[in-house]
Structure formats: structure tokens, C-alpha cells
């Protein structure tokens, strides 16, 4: 397992390098002097000249790339134009919100998506199945921000059960109870993704149920529920795990929207605000961080997949 993990880490390197080139080129695709772009409108000519020299903007592009990559590897992603702070610190300040939001969302997806998917598959062809699987498709057809706005209107404005926006850190007053700020956002974010998991669990369970080994399990005289869980659901999880990487990509994308709807101080909203503020160093930094994160998650998904399916060779 360890050897496999290390090997997979190495295969990530070329993709990471290629992605980093794209992220690096991003600033150069914007028309204008890159140093002026990175420093914003208020920069003085001296500052621009200084950064130009530092980053080697007068030298060939590939040297600039390696200078930039060297900085990145040391954790130096540049200085935010808007905050006047290191980009890494700006991203770090949104990390708590985003990580908590993602974890709570995953919690809902598993808590809601898996059981409904199993129900839909076991009641295949009945009205229960029709309602759950069309309901799931409907949930996946909703714009997340629209759902979020209505959840705010119903549960915050009308009923007053949950706060409508913002998120004070867990280390602020209120401690762990501050998580209530994330309940509506995480439900909003979970809805379309849980819906996809419902459809996926249903489809792959129906596929597995047709396989010969399920007939063998029934021939053992096992209770039907045991056959469903231990033999059908367990095997269907392999396909579900393989799709979890996509779920995470969707989650990252939709978090951008959800954090904006609920005004959460997370990385997603930071992206949007930085784009509107033309804070290029932050945009560049956040994209790099998210791409690395996404690759790590895909690696974890692959490892989980290998654990679930003994046929996957770990060599």
C-alpha cells in the first residue's frame, strides 16, 4: 500500500508541473505589464521596477517560470493587492470555513445520499423508486444559489431557526455552536451532490444485483437484507467510490457559489471577490492551491478504490 501511494505521488508530478505552468501563464495572458498587474493600480513606477527585477520579468519566460516556481515551493505566492498581505496568509484565513463547510457537506451527502440510493435500488420499479430517483434528478437540476436563497428565506427569515449569513470562527464566542451558521450552506451544497450519489448508488446496485455471485449468495439461504447489504451494496460501493472524485470537483465549484450566497468567509468567496477586485496574485494562488488539493483528493479516492476492490493491483 505504501509503495503504491509513493508511486502514485510520483505520477502526479508531471500533471502538477503542467498545471503549474498554466497557472503561471495566467498572469501573462492578461494584457499589460505583469508587474503592474500583480501590484495593482496604486503601485508606483519604482515598485513596479523592483518587482520586475525580483521576478525576472525582463528575462525569458522559462526563467521567470522557474523563479516563480522556486518562490511557490518556499510558500511564497506573492502579495495580495487588496489586502497588502502575503497570498498564503489570505488563503489560510479562509481555510477554516471552507474545510468545515466541505466536511459538513460530505457528512450530509453520505447520510442522505447512501440510504436513499439503497432504498431506491431495493424498491426498484415501484413508486418509491420512481419518486426517489426523479426527486434526486430534480434536486440535481436546481441552481444551488436559488435553493440557498429559498432556504434562507424559509429557515432564517421566516422561521428564524438558523442564521442567514456569515460564519464566526469556532475559536470565537459560541465555540462549537457556531457550526449552526454552516447548516444551511452545507445542506444547500449537499443537495445536488447527494442527488448524484443517490442516482449512482441506485444504478450500480442494480448492475451488481444482476451478477452471478449474488445468485450464489441467495443460494446460501442468506436473509435478503444481508444479501442486499453485504453482497450488492458492498460491491456497488466500488463504482460509487470511483465517482467520489467528481463529486469533490463539483463541491469545490459549487462552494464558490454557496459561500457567496451565505457570505461565508471561505476560499470560494475569496476567488469571486478577487476576480471582481482584479486581485491577480490571490486568484493565481487560490487556483494553484485548489488544483493541488483536488489532485490529492483524487489520489485518496484511488487509494480508497484500491482498498474496496481487491482486483485492483497495487503494484
Amino acid at each position: 500500500m505504501l509503495a503504491y501511494t509513493v508511486k502514485r505521488l510520483f505520477t502526479l508530478i508531471p500533471t502538477l508541473l503542467a498545471a503549474s505552468i498554466l497557472v503561471f501563464l495566467f498572469v501573462h495572458l492578461i494584457p499589460g505589464d505583469p508587474a503592474a498587474i500583480l501590484l495593482g493600480d496604486t503601485a508606483t513606477p519604482e515598485e513596479i521596477a523592483q518587482l520586475s527585477a525580483e521576478m525576472g520579468f525582463d528575462r525569458p519566460l522559462w526563467i521567470q517560470y522557474f523563479l516563480w516556481l522556486g518562490n511557490v515551493l518556499q510558500g511564497d505566492l506573492g502579495i495580495s493587492i487588496f489586502f497588502r498581505e502575503p497570498v498564503l496568509a489570505v488563503i489560510g484565513s479562509g481555510a477554516e470555513t471552507s474545510i468545515l463547510l466541505a466536511s459538513m457537506t460530505m457528512f450530509w451527502i453520505i447520510l442522505i445520499g447512501l440510504p436513499i440510493g439503497v432504498l431506491s435500488a431495493t424498491k426498484h420499479g415501484t413508486w418509491v423508486d420512481q419518486i426517489t430517483s426523479s426527486g434526486a434528478m430534480l434536486a440535481a437540476s436546481m441552481p444551488t444559489f436559488w435553493l440557498g436563497l429559498y432556504l434562507i428565506m424559509i429557515f432564517s427569515v421566516t422561521l428564524g431557526w438558523f442564521p442567514s449569513s456569515g460564519f464566526p470562527s469556532l475559536s470565537d464566542d459560541g465555540g462549537i455552536t457556531n457550526l449552526r451558521y454552516l447548516i444551511l450552506p452545507s445542506l444547500t451544497l449537499a443537495a445536488p451532490n447527494a442527488a448524484l450519489i443517490v442516482r449512482l448508488v441506485r444504478a450500480s446496485m442494480l448492475d451488481v444485483a444482476r451478477e452471478d455471485h449474488v445468485r450464489t449468495a441467495r443460494a446460501k439461504g442468506l436473509h435478503p437484507a444481508r444479501v442486499t447489504i453485504k453482497h450488492v451494496f458492498r460491491n456497488a460501493l466500488i463504482a460509487v467510490a470511483a465517482a467520489f472524485g467528481f463529486t469533490f470537483a463539483a463541491l469545490i465549484s459549487e462552494a464558490v457559489v454557496t459561500e457567496t450566497v451565505f457570505s461565508l468567509p471561505g476560499i470560494g468567496r475569496l476567488v469571486v471577490q478577487s476576480i471582481l477586485r482584479r486581485d491577480y496574485p490571490v486568484i493565481q494562488g487560490v487556483i494553484l492551491v485548489i488544483v493541488v488539493l483536488y489532485m490529492i483528493i483524487n489520489l485518496l479516492v484511488d487509494l480508497a478504490y484500491a482498498r474496496l476492490d481487491p482486483r485492483v493491483s497495487l503494484k
Binding site: T15, A249, A250, E254, V271, I290
Partner: peptide, 10 residues
């Protein structure tokens, strides 16, 4: 490796 909406945003 770039999630869909993020790539669109870039």
C-alpha cells in the same frame, strides 16, 4: 485537474 466552474472563472 481544474474543477469546472473554477476553470470557467479563470
Amino acid at each position: 485537474a481544474f474543477p469546472a466552474l473554477l476553470m470557467a472563472l479563470v
